[in-house]
């Protein structure tokens, strides 16, 4: 009897450990931005960066301040690792987009990818590709985790807002669907409408016959 109790105890302990460590898709709906820049030393590497004070203001995360009568200096916010939020805050289901969503629920469709927690870093690397000489900051805010039904199967995707700030150029942004495994951008919309400025410049070419 004692042995059975001990075995049961350790069984439940092991099960509990396995469940807590098992990598589940992160359905967390985030409300904050994460910033990525090129490593100042290893230019080919992309690293997560603590947002600067001006970044927090720009992205609306900065708390309100008083007028010039009495301006109190705001405290810097610490960067939070959202993938470590307790499971109770994670949404349990991904919304399914596209035709025949019931096929996914019935498991009658091929799964085209597997979510990875590095998808955001991978996205940042793609957006900062070849930018080691530029002063570019990429801000990513996850909005939703979804499943997209495609011709060949179902794909795990993330809906994000991307904001790109280039020094001397300003800020531009858009919404996008991102592959939850590779971080590849699949579709973009809600792109900034610029009236004037460097985002609308052309290039000069020389005319040579093909």
């Amino acid at each position: 009897m004692k042995k059975i109790s001990l075995i049961s105890f350790f069984t439940f302990l092991i099960i509990g450990l396995v469940v807590s460590l098992w990598e589940k898709p992160d359905h967390t709906v985030e409300v904050k931005w994460e910033k990525f820049v090129t490593d100042p030393v290893k230019k080919t590497k992309v690293v997560k960066s603590a947002p600067l004070e001006e970044d927090l203001y720009r992205l609306g995360q900065k708390p309100k301040v008083k007028t010039s009568k009495k301006i109190s200096k705001p405290t810097k916010k610490k960067f939070t690792n959202y993938s470590r939020l307790p499971s109770s805050t994670r949404a349990q289901n991904r919304e399914i987009l596209g035709p025949n969503p019931e096929l996914f629920k019935k498991r009658k469709v091929e799964i085209l990818n597997r979510p990875k927690k590095e998808w955001k870093e991978n996205l940042a690397k793609k957006l900062l590709r070849g930018r080691d000489k530029d002063k570019v900051s990429v801000f990513i805010k996850k909005e939703k985790s979804l499943i997209q039904m495609e011709r060949n199967g179902a794909r795990y995707i993330e809906q994000v807002v991307v904001s790109i700030h280039k020094s001397r150029f300003g800020t531009t942004g858009y919404r996008a669907f991102i592959d939850s495994e590779t971080g590849s951008v699949l579709k973009t919309w809600d792109r900034t409408v610029h009236e004037y400025g460097p985002f609308k410049k052309g290039i000069s070419v020389k005319l040579i016959n093909l």
Partner: peptide, 16 residues
């Protein structure tokens, strides 16, 4: 503070 800036960003709903 942006020169000659007038823009609308639907992703962030910002008018600059």
């Amino acid at each position: 503070g942006d020169a000659n800036a007038a823009s609308y960003s639907p992703s962030s709903q910002v008018i600059n």
